[in-house]
Amino acid sequence: MPAGKAFSKDIILFDNVNKVVDNIVEQLRADVLQRFKRHGAVVGISGGIDSSVCLALAAKAFGPDKVLGIMLPEKDSSPDSEMLARELAARYGVKAIKEEITGALTGFGCYERRDEAVKRVFPEYDPKTWKMKIGIRQSGLFNNIPPIFYLTVIDPAGNEKDKILPANEYLQIVAASNFKQRTRMSMLYYQAEALHYCVVGTPNKHEQEQGFFVKYGDGAGDVMPIGNLYKTQVYQLAEFLGVPKGIIERTPTTDTYSAEQTQEEFFYQLPFNLMDRFWYGFENGYPASEVASVMNETTDRVEALFRNFERKRKTTEYLRMPPIRDYYYG
């Protein structure tokens, strides 16, 4: 806990954003250029806030001509993503290329395997004209049972139906969808290796610690400049670095399923401005009662929330772990 610093809603805000940016940029140069001996960096750009801040930081660290922005759309991607990614690259003078991954995903059977599982739950689902998403309906964050995922399908007339997702279908839909992030990462490494560059990983602190990433997919990379920053702090950096307003004001989405879905709906269950403050209190050891009083919550609910955070961190350890090889030393 920061010595003598009482918990407050502003506790996570950076006082000096310029200094934070300078530190990150300096460290990026040291890691990529001096330690890894790479000549620059590639960044997958989705039109989202995290990858945008990473591209801006990379451009500042290595110079725009040593950074390549890569758009990696597939058939379920929002058209806004490409438009915003192009605007971003133009803002920083970085070259941007587009690598369409629908063909690769079709080859893996990503859509077919996913849709097969969806049809087991909703036989009437027609992937050609219907949309689908999975998400959490109720917030389990303030009680002691985990949330349950629902499958939602939307017919061409816009009528929605949802059902609790059974275990096997949940696993198959997630496993099939994860081809998207892993295919993107394969392409990022192709481009990086062809240029002798590094891959900039774009997860923020919550994605890392709560396990909201795909192992060896968007959870991969050589450097993760915002991996220890709260979303509120990422927004502070975005404002400072001049990220286009359209990106800053966009609601964070998963951009993974054919139906639109926010990250809050899919995973976090709390708006970022609240999640950041609660998580800060949790990881810095502030008493639940102190956090509850500042956040206008009850101590019981904050205690339940902290237990939930602890469980989430523990149960997602597998995602963050590199392969374990400490079995036998010959």
Partner: peptide, 22 residues
């Protein structure tokens, strides 16, 4: 025993438990 509070099950465990009970 409080099976979730005491950490015997995570969220995937809950989904599988419901499928098992059904």
């Amino acid at each position: 025993s409080l099976i979730f509070k005491e950490g015997f099950f995570d969220s995937m465990g809950f989904i599988m438990l419901i499928t098992f009970l059904e």
